[in-house]
Design a binder for these strands. Structure first.
Lengths: 222, 222
DNA sequence: GAGCATACCTACTCGTGCGTAGGGTTACGC
DNA sequence: GCGTAACCCTACGCACGAGTAGGTATGCTC
């Protein structure tokens, strides 16, 4: 049925590995714009310059395709952060490098961020995947806080640390979201501002400053 | 075709206002569990103890129904916070009351929270609704920070304040999320911990403490 | 240059779920 | 007690989109 008569003569027929990446690129793009359900396999295939059965042949069902996107983007993100920090740095330097890397990554991969954090969260089948990624990050932060505390000989309960870590991670995610919607903003500068909130606050907390409910407020180390 | 033979004799045929609330309750519940697309109008109708055309007659299409849920839950949330704060309180007391009210509300209305923040975010048609609500909260927080700063005669740019406000709001949302997944946790105590992160950090920032990137770090008021 | 695997297509099937047509029944005013 | 309006139902139409059947072309190996 003479397909694709016009256009360049020998263009198609790329090796599998290349096509898979093109498909993933297209999928991330379409998923991020339309959401998981809003995206159609036809549109993704179209955007990748390929037809639908190819997508099914290479990446499987829609659900599997989305998981593949999640994995690629998640891995890239974690890798970007891991590459930026060295274990021998001080606590605040590690936090700073992480923030830099993280916000830098988000600024450069807005679609990936949208897929991971704006779409995956609401969709039942994938909430678990995302929660796992998030938990790893929270535990990383909590571990960092705990390490600093222990090295100063202070004790804390796990729950308290977890809540603080959740707050820190949530704050950063929120700022990342803001960054995505403000293309004119500089990730580096945004990271500095975030560092101010996180570190100045955390440093005080680590130093023992506490806020207490109105009736018996005060500043007590323990 | 003799409908509903068994069960109580005179039970059905409730006034519109009552049925609408039942439908909204069911909708919020189902949407929060299954997500917007995963939820079916049939299931919602079923859960409300009514048949589908009634839902369409009273609340309109699925999209309109979801918006109605968003509005009711959003309004309830904002109201809960508004009821808790008085304008003549000090900045930290206002923040404290807000956090208490907010986390208390989330703890008591987990389904509503899930609909608002876990589902609405990813769905394209409603992202705007949610963003608007969020922006109102952010502006509230930013306004509070600015007011405190101005009363001490200090200047700041709008963008900086916005980022800090986003961080604070994001941190709180994240902690709320944690709270939803930890039914055993006490909202009041969680609010205290959140207050520690937010206020101890913010207080330092407001007082002029700054963190600076490694090469030229230091503490400078301006 | 025959054989084979890989890349790629068009054109379908079929389930699912939104939204509606068309009709029945109870309450309430008069 | 009769009309009318509000409440409520059982069906269905229909579009959309996931996934597939079945076939074609191209390059690579020997």
């Amino acid at each position: 049925m003479l397909a694709r008569v016009s256009s360049s003569p020998t263009f198609r027929r790329l090796p599998r590995a290349v096509r898979e990446q093109q498909m993933l690129d297209a999928a991330v793009k379409v998923f991020s714009r339309r959401g998981y359900h809003g995206a159609s396999m036809d549109e993704i295939a179209d955007d990748a310059g390929i037809s639908k059965p190819m997508v099914y042949a290479y990446l499987g069902t829609k659900e599997e395709l989305f998981v593949a996107c999640l994995h690629r983007e998640g891995t890239r993100m974690m890798q970007a952060i891991a590459d930026a920090v060295a274990p021998d740095l001080s606590a605040d330097e590690r936090l700073w490098r992480s923030l830099q890397a993280f916000l830098g990554f988000v600024g450069a991969h807005r679609d990936g961020w949208a897929v991971l954090y704006r779409q995956a969260r609401g969709e039942q089948p994938f909430a678990g995947e995302l929660t796992a990624l998030r938990r790893r990050i929270v535990e990383l932060v909590a571990g960092m806080l705990e390490h600093t505390l222990r090295s100063e000989g202070r004790e804390v309960t796990g729950t308290e640390l977890e809540v603080v870590a959740y707050a820190l991670v949530g704050a950063t995610e929120s700022v990342a979201d803001w960054l995505v919607d403000h293309p004119e903003a500089d990730p580096e500068q945004t990271a500095t501002q975030m560092m101010n909130v996180a570190w100045v606050g955390a440093a005080q907390l680590l130093a023992g400053t506490l806020w207490r409910p109105p009736n018996k407020r005060g500043e007590a180390p323990s």
